[in-house]
Amino acid sequence: MDLNILWFILVAVLFIGFFILEGFDYGVGILLPIMGKTDTERRVVINTVGPVWDGNEVWVLTAGGAIFAAFPHWYATLFSGFYLALFLMLVALIIRAVAFEYRSKAENPKWRAWWDRGIVFGSLIPAILWGVALGNMLRGVPIDADMHYVGTFFDLLNPYAIIGGLTSLSMFLLHGAIFLNLKTSGELSERALHLTRRIGPVTTVMVAIFIVSTYLMTDSFSRLGVNPGPIPIASLGALFAAAYFVHIGRLGWAFLMTSVNIGLSVITIFMALFPRVMVSSLNPDWSLTIYNASSSPKTLTIMSIVALIFIPIVLAYQTWTYWVFRHRISIESELTY
C-alpha cells in the first residue's frame, strides 16, 4: 500500500469521525425547537452537546487541512468549484458556533429566539449540503482537462444530489434524536424517543431511495473503484437493527447502529470513488485521482508520521471527554449554556 492510498483512507476516517460526531450535533441543533418547549428545555437540549460540539467540528477542519496537505488539487478544485455551496456552509457554521456560546448569555427572550434560529439554520444547512456534496462527488461534476470545475452552482443542485442532501439530513436527524434520548431524562427523553420512532422509518426509506437512485440516476456502479459489495446493504441493514433496538428499548445499541449506518455510508462512497477523489463527468481521464492530485512523496511521508502520532492521541482525549460527560442532563441540572 502506498502513501497515497493511506491518505485516501485517512481522509475517509476523518470524514467518518466527523459525520458520526458532528452528525448528532446537527440533528440536535435541528430538533431544538421541536424538542424544547420551554427555555429551560431548550437549554437542556443545547447542553447535551455543549461540551463536545466544538471538538467534533474540528474533525472537518482537520479533514479540510488533510485534503490540502495530501491532495492539494482536490482541495483547490473542490473548494473553488463548490464555491457558493461552501460559502453557505461556512456562514451556517459561523453562526452556529457563535449561537451555541452566546444564546444563554443574555436573558432577553428575543435574543435567545434569534440565536435558536441561528442554531437551527446553522445545523440544517450543513446537514443537507454535506449530502449534496457527496452526492455530486459520486455522480461526477464537470471538470476539464486542467482540473478546473467548469459548472455552475446550479449544476450542483441536480435531483440526485438533492436526494443525497435529504438522505444525509434524515440520517443526522435520526442519529441526533437517539442521542437526545440517551442524554436527557424524563419528559424530554420520552419526546426524543417519540421523534426517533417517527424519523426512523423516513431515514430508512431515504437511504434505500438513495441507493436505488445511485443505480438509476448515476453510472457510479458501472465504474466502481472498489466494489463495495454488500456494504451499502449493510448500511441500510444497520438502520433496521437500530429500529429493532429502539423497539426493545436498547437505545445505546440503536445509537451504535446509526453510527454504523453513517460510517458504512461514507465507506461505500469512498470505495466507489477510489482511486478517484473527484469524478469528471466530461471525460473519465480528467478525473482527479489520489495520484494526479496528490502532494509529493516527501510531504505525504511527513504528514503520515504526524497523523499516525496525533490521531490516536486525539481519539484518546476525545473519548475521555465523552466519558466525563456521559451522564444524562435534566431540567434540574446545572446548565452552562
Binding site: W53, V58, A66, F68, S295, T299, M303, Y317
Partner: peptide
C-alpha cells in the same frame, strides 16, 4: 499545497483539537 498544506493540517491535528476539546 505541497508545502503550505502541511503546517495547516498539523495545526488542526495538534492544536485545534486540543484547544476545542479542552475548552469544552
Amino acid at each position: 499545497g505541497d508545502i503550505f498544506g502541511a503546517p495547516l493540517a498539523i495545526e488542526a491535528l495538534m492544536a485545534f483539537f486540543l484547544e476545542s476539546t479542552f475548552l469544552g
